[in-house]
Design a protein around this nucleic acid. Structure first.
Lengths: 154, 154
DNA sequence: TTCAATTAGTGGCATATGCCACTTTCGGCG
DNA sequence: CGCCGAAAGTGGCATATGCCACTAATTGAA
């Protein structure tokens, strides 16, 4: 019982990460508010933008998202006309994604808002500190969690 | 256009944070798998456990969650009999939350699984590094983003 | 060439989170 | 005491994410 922890109980790496994500998410969401995009959608549009007409699987992998989750997340963006999909020429299983002209315009608009938020955040925590945090988070994202729970097969 | 960014574009603090959160979330989710709890639910049960029959608002504040979101998240846990609510004696607006005996048992079970995951994670990134990351994330979570976008009123 | 295994997505179902519009209580004031 | 504004939740609606079961295409043998 003595391990009842301090008020924070921020011992769980995952819980701490989610907590910060909720916080920061709302901040960026607010900043993007007038564009009508959520920070998640902004990130997705941006990823599509910097990739060249990427396949869904490629986006999912880059963002470390479940493929089906990506499909769901893409729907409102397609519905609103920011994104469109088209079949790959060589492999008909593959569906590629790209921004529509309106999607490009919306992204440009959102980037301005995002920049302000990004700047404000970095002013508060320090650009160097922020870069360091991102680097650490990228390391976490890149971790290869091989199962240690189950006995290795073969 | 030259700012088209590198393959990663991990420039956005928020996107980077979410990406890592998805990754780590799945890892902890897998670890908790056999308990039937998601890492989010585990965190919630734990928070209730360490707080003393907290009011919903108190939990929401501690976890930096929207109050209504907390209400929604609590439902499956109530439905499954892990948590129960009851009215505050003095203020009928307040609804307090506590674990049921089964909830306690389930939490105990989950803590074992969580510990293994926690340990594995810290073995990979280093306990010191992990503690540092959590500290930074707690700082982010504690940031007070006053609006700079709009002109200050009054 | 033909069939099994693999790869890429889709759809359904469930939880996670937020925002907004209300409803119920409290608390403080005139 | 009666009313107004603040505080605490609830419900509805929408997006974010995952897992699983399937379907459609491909690829790699036999």
């Amino acid at each position: 019982m003595t391990e009842a922890q301090q008020p924070g109980f921020s011992r769980c790496n995952n819980a701490t990460l989610r907590r910060a994500a909720r916080r920061l998410g709302r901040f960026y969401d607010d900043a993007l508010g007038t564009s009508g995009l959520k920070s998640t959608q902004f990130g997705l549009l941006f990823q599509i933008h910097v990739s060249g007409e990427p396949a869904m699987g490629a986006i999912a992998e880059a963002l470390i998202m479940d493929l089906s989750a990506l499909g769901h997340t893409l729907k409102p963006l397609i519905r609103d006309g920011y994104v469109e999909t088209f079949a790959d020429k060589d492999d008909r299983r593959i569906k590629r994604v790209r921004l529509t002209p309106q999607g490009q315009a919306k992204l440009d608009e959102a980037i301005k808002l995002w920049s302000a938020a990004q700047r404000q955040f970095e002013d508060m925590v320090g650009a160097k500190q922020a870069a360091k945090l991102r680097a650490t988070l990228d390391e976490v994202a890149a971790l290869d969690f091989e199962m240690a729970t189950a006995a290795p097969s073969i």
